[in-house]
Design a protein around this nucleic acid. Sequence first.
DNA 1: GATATTGTTCGTATATTTGCGAACAATTAA
DNA 2: TTAATTGTTCGCAAATATACGAACAATATC
Lengths: 109, 109
Amino acid sequence: MPTTKVNKYKEDQERVARFAKALGNPVRIAILQFLANQDSCFFGDIHDVLPIAKATVSQHLKELKEAGLIQGDIEGPKVRYCINRNNWEEAKVCFNRFFGDIKNKKESC
Amino acid sequence: MPTTKVNKYKEDQERVARFAKALGNPVRIAILQFLANQDSCFFGDIHDVLPIAKATVSQHLKELKEAGLIQGDIEGPKVRYCINRNNWEEAKVCFNRFFGDIKNKKESC
DNA sequence: GATATTGTTCGTATATTTGCGAACAATTAA
DNA sequence: TTAATTGTTCGCAAATATACGAACAATATC
């Protein structure tokens, strides 16, 4: 018995929570929206539109990358960032299922 | 000129981030799913299904309430909690728009 | 090779989050 | 009135998140 139903359930919960956590910061939302509006861009372009130090930007990008929402590829001395569309879709589905997973009843309290 | 477009944009970003932040914890996700599967229940019922102290549960509920995702009403010595369906729908739409707001292009980097 | 450009990593400071037990308030039951 | 039940709030500890400048590594340019 590799995985019980309960564990599966919990895994899903942690997955949503993990995505949500990555989205739970205005700077990271801004970065994602900026990236979503183009095919890709360099670190510098992202830094240019944000009012924070490059070290901080770099750290936010790292977290978004670890969450799987973006990816970065070295290109010369620059780094090209873009949305990871597969995982973006996964996250979308994930949230949709989460928000849809509700008993369709009237106001309750 | 009450609000510029840019500010509107930023407000939206902070709104998504605020919802996401509230969802960015497995315990809170578990609470929401538990609540989503019934009309309502008491604090004790929620506490019973979680492996954490009641003080901690109470605090998570407070955050969810402040995010607008749930509501709690005093009922005798107990407190009845339930999903705030209006805001639940709002959050759903909010995330959907966020995830939909992406240039429909091929892999970029 | 020397220098400039581009980002990441390191060390650090501060703020926020998460968790707990104890104390507390409010209601109900004896 | 006293005691029990139900949650919240308080005070605290530990962990995590956010931000910065400085140092660093890698590439490109002179």
